[in-house]
Every structure is written in C-alpha cells, then in structure tokens.
C-alpha cells in the first residue's frame, strides 16, 4: 500500500488533487481512498489531504500518520508545518519549489530524500494561474509510479471539463521536469 500526505493551503486544491488521483487509481481497477483532514475549511490556512492506493481492499480509516510520501503544494508551508513528521524511513518529500534539492534541504534542514519540481511556474505557463495542485500530481506519479499518468487525463476531463486538457498538459510537464534525489 502507498500512503501519501498532501500539504497545501485552503483554496490550493490539495483535497481535489488527492481525490483525482484516487479516482484515477480506482478506474485502473486498483483500490484507493482520498480524504481531507476533516475540519472547518478556511482559505489560506494549512490543510492536509490523504491518499491510499493498494491492489486489494483498504481497511484502514484513520489519518495517515506515517506516510511513504509527503507532497507539499506550497513551499511557504515548510516554515509553518513540520511536513516531514512521521515520514517513513526511506520515504520521500516532493516539494513545489524553484530551488535545487541541495539548496532546499540545507535551507530547511530536511534530512529525508527530496524530489523537486517548479510546479508554480509550470502551472502559470499552462493555466495562467499559480494553482499547482494538478501539476504536482505529475511529480507524484513520476516519483511513485502509483498510477499511469494517462489515467489522470480522464479524471481531469471528468472534473474540469474543457480545462481538463490544460491541467493534464501541465501535469505531464511536471512529470518530465521532476528531479529526484539519488536518481
């Protein structure tokens, strides 16, 4: 089972992107769960969302305390939230940043493995807005191979209609540009 925790701010679409990955995984015939950290939703406040994907039925219904992967949509969160909390040994943090892996690890003292992609830039180029949620899913797939990237095309189309294609293109670009430590 793969367990992912997403960190974003209210309004950035962390929950939506988690839902889309789960929907795509289920369409592939896998089992998946996506859910928010339940609570009052406030634009701009730190929020978390969770994804579980497995080949068989998923029975756990508690929050993910020990994720395999942490994905951070908004780099300013790293100062506010301990994003690596509970990360499994050998787990990886995927960051939306313009900085290099070495720079970001030094700046924030992250000892876990890191992957980076400048998703804000890619999203702005493709969508005209710095909303990086769907774009970051390209990075998630690059790092984890949890689903085929093509599976997101249908999920995006289903959710965003005509804008689905632009989101998918942005996601594909992030897939291509994601840099992973140790690979």
């Amino acid at each position: 089972m793969l367990e992912v925790r997403l960190h974003g701010r209210g309004g950035q679409g962390a929950v939506t992107s988690a839902e889309l990955v789960a929907e795509a995984a289920i369409n592939e015939g896998k089992y998946a769960q996506a859910f928010p950290s339940f609570g009052p939703e406030r634009r701009g406040a730190p929020v978390r969302a969770f994804i579980r994907v497995d080949d068989g039925p998923i029975l756990l219904r508690n929050e993910i305390d020990e994720p395999d992967v942490v994905l951070v949509l908004d780099p300013t969160l790293i100062r506010v939230v301990n994003v690596t909390e509970g990360l499994k040994k050998g787990g990886i943090v995927i960051l939306n940043t313009s900085k290099s892996i070495a720079e970001i690890k030094k700046e924030y003292g992250i000892t876990a493995k890191v992957a980076t992609v400048n998703a804000t830039r890619i999203a702005t180029e493709n969508l005209g807005r710095p909303i990086a949620n769907t774009t970051m899913m390209g990075a998630l797939i690059k790092v984890t191979s949890v689903i085929a990237i093509e599976s997101l095309q249908e999920a995006f189309g289903h959710r965003f209609g005509k804008l689905g294609e632009k989101n998918y293109k942005s996601c594909q670009m992030a897939f291509g540009e994601t840099v992973m430590e140790g690979r």
Binding site: A18, A22, E23, I26, Y31, A34, R61
Partner: peptide, 10 residues
C-alpha cells in the same frame, strides 16, 4: 460523518 461521508473510494 467525514470518516465515510467525505472519503473517495470504490
């Protein structure tokens, strides 16, 4: 509530 109502699953 939430634990089921707000979860995406098959």
């Amino acid at each position: 509530g939430f634990i089921l109502t707000h979860v995406i699953e098959p």
